[in-house]
């Protein structure tokens, strides 16, 4: 199987307290150097809590943010967005906030036409025909084309966003929390639509979400992100039921579930560490029940076990099998 996306040593740091001249006051490492591959045709889910670097990662993949280090290969070629008209055909992005991803002063048709004209240089008639096709694929009525974005509900707007991404005819879609702004009943519609489109067009997805159940429902593989680093990668079926990294286990235990009594999964009420003064060693050590002295001194590296599960922990949880 070929690799749709291959990230090597990819990282991003932001300067805080910029000055006009001279170095900034401090750096925040939003994404720490990471390696990851997405195979063609799969859905890779990425979960993590707010602020863990999910969106930063996604924006780098589509060239909206330049990486600090490392390299991104899309279908074997190094990412190069010098020419937006070529780049847009390779990878596309679906945004979290469906309404604000549509220009309020353009009609849906005007929005849909841009990728067709700029990326594929289609003439007017071809464009109209193509838009009709895409709209049919995402179950939108054609009469919507001459309306403005504010006339749509979140779910409809998100379909339009997906339709625009499809118009570019890229084979890889980065879906950044595509349903978290939607209501549950609409969320299911959009998730199902995404699944259908994937099958119909042979797409590869990178699906980002903070909702474990949603990610599990759509993904083949899942990577868990914590504090800008991947802490565990494994098959969607296994990873939460059988977590090896204590953080993955904590996430799974925190998801509210009917019938399970409430227990605060942490004794000490700690939250994410301060990005301006990151802890030494494992970023999770202040919240981890298994932390040892080594965890406080050394950063664990991502290692793969015999079952193909990768995790970054010195004292992983035992497999239950």
């Amino acid at each position: 199987m070929s690799e749709a996306l291959k990230l090597t040593d990819l990282s991003k740091s932001f300067a805080v307290g910029k000055r006009l001249f001279g170095p900034p006051k401090a750096m925040v490492h939003a994404v720490q150097p990471l390696d990851l591959t997405v195979t063609t045709g799969e859905t890779l889910g990425i979960v993590g809590e707010s602020g863990c670097g999910k969106s930063t990662l996604a924006k780098m993949l589509v060239g909206l943010l330049p990486p600090t280090t490392g390299q991104i290969e899309i279908e074997g070629a190094v990412l190069d967005n010098a020419d937006p008209a070529r780049f847009g055909k390779r990878i596309q992005y679906v945004f979290q906030d469906p309404i604000s991803s549509l220009n309020p002063r353009k009609t849906i048709r005007q929005i849909m036409e841009v990728p067709l004209r700029r990326l594929h240089h289609m003439d007017k008639a071809t464009r109209a025909a193509r838009i009709r096709e895409i709209f049919a694929a995402v179950n939108l009525r054609e009469e919507f084309l001459d309306r403005y974005p504010h006339e749509f509900s979140g779910g409809q707007a998100q379909r339009i966003g997906i339709a625009r991404a499809l118009a570019a005819q890229a084979r890889i879609l980065i879906l950044d929390e595509p349903v978290s702004a939607l209501d549950v009943s609409v969320q299911a519609q959009v998730l199902n639509l995404l699944a259908d489109l994937k099958e119909a067009f042979g797409l590869t997805y990178l699906f980002i979400s903070h909702d474990l159940a949603v990610v599990e429902a759509v993904s083949d593989r899942i990577a868990v992100l914590y504090f800008g680093a991947i802490v565990e990668v494994g098959s969607a079926r296994e990873i939460f039921a059988n977590a090896r990294h204590p953080y993955t286990a904590l996430l799974a235990a925190s998801a509210p579930e009917v019938g399970r009594p409430i227990v605060a999964p942490e004794t000490a009420a700690t939250e994410l560490p301060d990005p301006l003064s990151p802890p030494l060693g494992c970023a999770f050590n202040e919240r981890c029940g298994f932390a040892t002295d080594r965890c406080r001194a050394e950063k664990p590296a991502l290692t793969t076990d015999e079952t193909g599960r990768a995790f970054a922990c010195f004292n992983p949880l035992a497999t239950t099998r």
């Binding site: 779910g155 549950v184 009943s185 519609q189 159940a213 429902a217 759509v218 998801a255």
Partner: peptide
Amino acid sequence: LIDCVPTLGGGQRKLAAIPGLP
């Protein structure tokens, strides 16, 4: 509504969406 919310542990699957909007 209960049907269309995915729950953890259900694996990869199709969800039972409610058509239309409120």
